[in-house]
């Protein structure tokens, strides 16, 4: 696909997403917004998992840190746009601090370290009641105003989130096109050659992980303001697993992979839940079973995720 077709298709998709909200019910717009918020986090995870080839099992922890920071600061009266950089920076720094020792030692230890980190963060959220509200959570989180426009309504907040998602996507796109990003692509394609050319694998991987964490932190801010209430539950380690699966299923290392994967993980089950057609009703209950089996099948036949299907077909067609 050349660049112009790509841009046109993207613009059309965004316009469709913007217009469709006017015709959807309140709950459906809420779900769309939830999708966009999760995509922010999975987009960051894609940087770690897809481009750097590292498994992170703690994305929900960073998502949660962002959400709790937002809840506390927004309730103190901070403006939304001031909270965003704080959340991003805190998650970035925590990501560096966690990733540095873990990546220093051995390849797959980042997965273990992030997993442990997620469980600890979850415990802290639940037990440090003075700060986090414990299991009662924090309620009454305000939604922002932007240039004097109240973003409290569900459609207004959806536009705000969608716009922010586009900006974040743009930043990611730019990062991947920068010299840094190119070195990165070289790393993914052939690590041994990249290393011999003087690319510091560990430093690049660490940076990718920390930036991915910052994206999750930003997503968390939008999440807190969307739900207007947070408690530890959504930041459990099982959410990290779902996020990772979303990235892999969509297509790890593919720019639009997280958007597709998150739709499958977040939107599809909600769509099934609302349906009354008998076989779809059956799917409501069995959804995760089918999804789980589909993940196994995908790993066997299409380990690159759904968006890699074109390359796969090309490869099949050509000489092997």
């Amino acid at each position: 696909m050349n660049a112009r077709v790509h841009l046109l298709a993207l613009a059309a998709a965004l316009a469709a997403l913007a217009i469709v909200a006017l015709y959807l019910k309140r709950s459906e717009v809420y779900l769309l917004t939830l999708w966009a918020v999760y995509v922010m986090a999975t987009m960051g995870l894609n940087l770690t998992a897809g481009y750097a080839g590292q498994m992170s099992l703690g994305q929900a922890a960073f998502f949660g840190i962002g959400a709790y920071l937002a809840a506390i600061l927004l309730k103190l009266g901070w403006p939304f746009l001031a909270v965003l950089p704080v959340a991003a920076l805190v998650c970035f720094v925590v990501g560096l601090a966690l990733g540095f020792p873990a990546l220093r030692v051995q390849h797959h230890y980042l997965a273990f370290a992030t997993l442990g980190f997620n469980v600890l963060v979850y415990l802290a959220m639940r037990n440090e009641e003075q700060i986090t509200g414990g299991t009662f959570g924090i309620s009454g989180i305000p939604r922002p105003t932007f240039l004097g426009i109240d973003l409290g309504g569900h459609v207004a907040y959806w536009y705000w989130t969608l716009g922010s998602l586009v900006v974040l996507g743009g930043i990611l796109w730019w990062l991947l096109r920068s010299p840094w990003g190119r070195a990165f692509a070289a790393l993914r394609d052939n690590p041994i050659r990249a290393e011999s050319l003087g690319v510091n694998i560990t430093a690049y991987t660490l940076l990718a992980f920390a930036i991915g964490a910052a994206f999750a932190g930003v997503g968390g801010v939008y999440y807190a303001s969307l739900v207007e209430f947070i408690e530890p539950g959504p930041f459990h380690f099982s959410t990290s697993l779902m996020m990772l699966l979303a990235v892999i299923v969509g297509g790890s290392g593919k720019f639009y992979g997280p958007a597709l994967g998150t739709a499958i993980v977040i939107l599809l089950p909600e769509f099934l839940r609302g349906s009354s057609t008998p076989w779809l009703k059956f799917m409501q209950v069995w959804y995760l079973a089918v999804f789980g089996i589909a993940v196994v099948a995908l790993m066997i036949w299409l380990p690159g995720g759904l968006l890699s299907i074109r390359e796969r077909l090309d490869r099949k067609g050509g000489p092997q």
């Binding site: 699966l245 069995w286 995760l288 999804f291 789980g292 993940v295």
Partner: peptide, 25 residues
Amino acid sequence: DPLIRHGVIPLVIATLGVSMALKTI
């Protein structure tokens, strides 16, 4: 058997899928 040649990560992801499927079933 079919997955081990793809490396550790796809296999790990597949076992996550198995875990989810078993619980739901």
